[in-house]
Structure formats: C-alpha cells, structure tokens
Design a protein around this nucleic acid. Structure first.
Lengths: 359, 359
DNA sequence: TTTAAAAATGTGTTCGAACACATTTTAATA
DNA sequence: TATTAAAATGTGTTCGAACACATTTTTAAA
C-alpha cells in the first residue's frame, strides 16, 4: 500500500489526490458497499474487512466530500425567520438586509426561506406570527426573541414540533445551548465607560440617559458602573435618568431642565440608538458634552461625522441576522457545526472608521 | 404552464420547489440536452425551442444548483500561499493561523493548499520561494507582497504562466483589479488621530514615533496629519521621530533624550506594533502619556489592559489571510465572484473590547 | 451431506449539472 | 422523389456519497 506524499512548500496536508469511497474499497480489497457500512457503522461487516478498511481510512485521513454528500441528501431545507417589522422600528432594517443577503446567497443551494414580521409593540402579534411559521414546520426557526415570556412559549412549541430554534439580537438564558448570535450587553456598557473615561480624566459628572427605553438596558448600565467601580482611581459622580421622547417638545423641556439642574455634567452615555434625539433637543443649549451612544442610524452617523457624537457602539444588527442564517444554512448543507454562542465583537466607531461599517 | 407559488410569511423567493434542468425540459417540452445548450448558449437550437426554454427559465427564475455543478466539475484546485516565515517575525503568526483555519475548512472540498515561507528580511528568499511555488503551477498564488520590486517580477511570472494572483496585507497598485484584502493605511492614520484628538482637547504636543520602521508607514503619518489639518479647530504641534530598538539600552537612552527635549508631549502615536518597546523604555520616566499603537501582540494587550496603552488599532492579519483563502476557495468551488478590493474595517480596540479580538 | 437461515459482501440507482455522443428532423441538392 | 449534408434534438455517462436491494459466503441445524 503505497500512498504518494508529495510536497514542495510547507504543508500539513500534502496529499495531492482526492480519495473517494471507491479508492478506499480498492485499497482495502473490498466493495464500496462494505466501506460504506464501515463509515456509517451499520454493522454486517467481518472483523477482517473492518480492520483493513479502518487502516486505509486512517492512513489517507479520509474526509467525505461534503459536496457529493450534500448533493445526495438533496433536500429542500426550510429556514424561517421571525423578526420585528422594520417598518415599525427602523432599528430592524439592517437585520432585514442581512437576512436578504443570506437568502440571496443560499437560495441557489436549495434552501428555502420565509420571513415573518411581527409588530414589536404587540406581544400578541409575535405569538400569532410564530404559530403561523410553525404550522408550516420549517427545519429551523431563527428569531429575535424580543418578548421574554412569549418567546418561552414559542420555544416550547418548537420543541414539541421538533423544530430547531436559533436566536439573534436578544439572548434568553432558558434556551441554553441553543444557537445565539448577538452581543454581550454588560460588556458593551463597560466599553462605553472606558471611552468616556479616556475623554474625561478629570472628576466630572457623567449622565446615563435612557430615551424611550423599556428596561432591557439594565445590563448595559451595570457594565458601565462596574467599570468605574473596578477602576477606583477615577471616581466620577454618575446620574441616571429616563426620558420619554414620544412628544418632542415635552422631551426638549425635560432635557433642558435636566441639564440645568446638573451643570457639572460633561459626558453622556445614551443606552440606545436615540442619541440623535438628545442632540437635537440640546441644539439651542450651547454646551460642550462628550457623548457615547449606540447604533449606526443615519442621524447618528451624521452627528458622529460632525463631531457632535464622539463614539458609537455598533451592535451589528445586519451581521447578526446574516450570520444567523448563514450558520444554519451551512449546517444543513455541509454539516458544519452550529456555534452555540456567538458573541460578536463590540465595535467602537468614530468619525474616521465609520465608512467601513456603514454597510 | 402553471407554476405553483406558495407563501405563508413575507417572501421574495416563494417557490417551494427546486427546479432542475429536467424540470425545465419537461415544462418546455424538450430534452435536457436542448436546455443545456440554451443555458450555455452552445447554439444548435431552433428559434422556437430557444424561445420556449427562455420563457420557462424566466418564469421560474432558474439558478443552477452550485452543489451539483461543483461536483461535476470536480477538480483538485491548488491554492498556494506565499508569506513571511512567522518564525522570523511574530507579526505573521496570526496570518499563518488564519490560513491554517481556512485550509482545514476547505480540504474536505478537494482544495489543496501549499504554503511557502520566505524570510521577510531577505528579498532573494522571496523570489526563490515564489519561483518554487510557480513551478508547480497552482491555480492561484495568494501572497503578502512585502517587497515591492520583487513582487512585480513575481506578478509578471504569474501572468506568463496564467496563474491567478491575490494579495493580502500590502497593496501594490500596479496589480490593479487584482484581488486584495487588507486595510487602508492612510485612513488608519486618521483613526489614530481622531482618538488622540478626543483624549487631548487642549493644545498639547503630539509625537509620532517610528520604531524599527522601514518606510511603509508614510501613509499612516499622512493620514494622521491630514486629520488635524482638516479639523482646523484643534491645532496641536506634531513632532515626528524615528527610533531604532535593535539595541535596547541605546534605544532607552534615545527615548529618554527625546522626551526630555520635548516636555510638552502628552500623546504618542506609534506607527507599528512596537508600542510595548516604547513603554518598556519609559518605565522609569514617570510621565502620563496617551498612547495609540497598532496590533494585538501579547505585550501590547497586557499594556492595554493595564491602562498603559489607550487604544490599539487592529490590522486583523488573521482575518486578512483567512478571507484571502476563503474567497479564492469559494470562487473555485461555487463560482462566487472574487471581490476586487476588500478593505477591512479599522477596528478600535480598548481594554474593554479586546477580548473579542484576541482570537 | 443437505438445507435453511444468518452474515457478509457486492451491485445498481439516485441527487443535478455538464458534456460527449447517438439519433432524428429539416433543408438543400441531384 | 431519392440522397445527403446540416441542423436540431435526444440519450447516456460522469462526478462522490448514500442507501436500497441482489448475490454470495458462512454457520448452524436437520
């Protein structure tokens, strides 16, 4: 048994030939059927044959051709995606784009997609669309589990129907060891804190502002405060405040009052994508603030480029959704393992590197 | 001709069926051979048949199955990689890792790889290894073209032998419209400048330090200076200085002299991965500096975490190399287009988000 | 030793696209 | 109308893995 090893450069995989089941059969002196039985340990193989085949397999380090395998198992996989309607909240536009991109990429491979948009302000709509999706029994349901309680219900439903679940954007810890793609919010709070810290070495006051926020963001605040507690050298007073921007003129008054009451504030951490609203409201108040916010909305990008916002933290909604789909598709098509927990890097965006993240 | 369109959710690709050439043949009332001739415009098809087939193709928006196509064209593709020996310069360790990862991923698909390490201090060794590689006529040569003149020579050689070329890490503009993966150095200088600007709102002095640097980095310096020229509000004096760290005690003296001569310097931009050497040399000199450097070397990461370095710019050598290989492999296997110019984002790293980039 | 059941091995088809080759149809010429 | 080249169309095989099914060999019971 002479296996040609040929190498010119430096190579861990020097074999130039592509071994197939037929080759293995020949090398072991059996038929491809027998090799197949060994490969899938379906039994009905004599000790002797089994041994000889395993020897060959080891020697040539056989890996089945994923392309041939995929063609044989040619099946139309159904990947359904459940996410908030981008028309209801523009935050979800990039996520939708990411999905579109992945769909375009994997449609020719015979993967079929179906999108279900729910109203992010309506829990019932979430459940309704989820059930709609499950009725058509997809192979997997990829969802942004915005509503905690309802998501658990959907999760149970999926388990009953033996539909796989994958998550993006929000993590729900009860779904343990389910595929999740997103960011660590606690750590992103720490990143925000470190940025403000570098801009404000003096002992100035820092404000944490929640604008139209519903709670979720506690993790970010915890991370933010933790950073300063860990780093005892720089003790800044921190003031947390929640604002409602549904009515813009009321919001503006509220902002004015707040900053009048706290003249020492020199940096602001806005815990979601609404930093642009704050700056708009502050326009007439001539105050020099360092601002760290979230998300690359058009308005935020403009303000970043104008120097009104110092840093934005990029949550990469597009990439989250894209990777969510890609991981699943490649799993079905080529048997790649689905990463259990995929925490995406927390990207720090300034006026100078924003071009690379715009899309 | 009735094609079933079935939709539950919101779907741009609603067709649940997987159309094959056979299906098209049936729908158009011809044989698969004729369909094949139309698909590849090989002629020998009557007007009538051509028309009917095209009608069907349009109606079902036919995309050939890339898996089947790839299996048929089953060929062992050879991708050779030419890069500096990581043993000679640790900068190249991550690049090598990225290649290893991609190799592992695509070996089962029947893509064969060969790596050629050259000595990054020896132009002759670069040429030698390049020629070695080309003698085995790979399908493509992916290289880090560290030596400009020699790279052009290799490029010509490749063209003669009809071997594709792809680049990573360095861009050489004569290779226009060749696949390149890397970063825009000019813009990365601007990013560094914006970071220092945010940390130093006062009119302090900034130093740009080249440590063991050979020239390349002019682009970064240009970008850096341009940022401050554009933003006329903050005029900082900028001092540029080159240092040699081959002999560490001489280097230390040099550093001391420099900072004594310029007591007003409060921020430093180190144009390559050698920021750790500067800080080591500065240890005894108790001076509070804001430092921006490059690359996630172990030493740099430690200093970042200790707060000695404020920001690192990540050039992502691992990802560069990985993507370089992946793009080529997917091109050969599934006919994906090779992106002509892939400028990777310029990532800003702090103590708090470094964990995500470590690997 | 014959026979039946069990165990082991081998053969053939499928997946979808690509292409070589075989066959039929059409048009042009005698 | 018969003949023949050209044009059009159809058939069959290949890629590699997977699995159903057919055949052979071995073992145990009659």
């Amino acid at each position: 048994m002479n296996i040609c090893v040929h190498s010119i450069g430096i190579n861990e995989f020097p074999v130039d030939k592509k071994y197939t089941i037929k080759d293995i059969a020949q090398l072991a002196g059996v038929s491809k059927g027998t090799v197949d039985r060994v490969l899938h340990s379906r039994g009905k193989v004599s000790e002797k044959a089994n041994e000889r085949i395993n020897e060959v397999l080891k020697e040539i380090d056989y890996r089945p051709n994923p392309i041939a395998r995929s063609l044989k198992n040619s099946k139309v996989y159904k990947i359904f995606v459940l996410l908030p309607d981008p028309k209801e909240d523009p935050y979800w536009i990039p996520a939708n784009e990411g999905i579109k991109e992945a769909v375009k990429e994997f449609n020719p491979f015979g993967v079929r997609f179906e999108k279900f948009f729910y109203n992010p302000k309506d829990r019932a709509s979430f459940l309704e669309k989820a059930n709609m999706a499950l009725q058509a029994t997809p192979d997997v349901l990829l969802m942004a589990p915005v509503f905690h309680k309802e998501s658990l219900e959907v999760f149970e439903n999926c388990q009953n129907k033996k539909v796989l679940v994958a998550l993006f954007n929000n993590y729900i810890d009860v779904f343990n060891n389910k595929n999740f793609i997103g960011q660590d919010l606690h750590q992103s709070g720490r990143v925000a804190a470190s940025l403000i810290d570098k801009m404000q070495p003096q002992k100035c006051t820092i404000a944490i502002l929640h604008i139209n926020e519903e709670a979720h963001m506690r993790q970010k605040v915890n991370g933010f405060k933790e950073y300063f507690e860990d780093k005892k050298s720089s003790l800044h007073p921190i003031i947390t405040y929640s604002l409602n921007a549904e009515n813009l003129s009321l919001f503006k008054n509220d902002v004015f009052d707040f900053f009048e009451k706290h003249p020492k504030i020199s940096s602001v951490f806005v815990t979601n994508s609404k930093a642009h609203l704050l700056i708009e409201a502050l326009k007439d108040l001539n105050r020099d603030l360092s601002i760290v916010g979230y998300d690359l909305l058009k308005e935020n990008i403009t303000l970043l480029e104008n120097g009104k916002i110092d840093f934005l933290i990029h949550q990469k909604p597009k990439r989250q959704a894209y990777l969510g789909v890609v991981n699943l598709a490649e799993h079905f098509l080529f048997g790649k393992p689905i990463p259990a927990q995929n925490l995406l890097p927390i990207d720090v965006i300034t006026s100078e590197n924003v071009i690379y993240y715009k899309d």
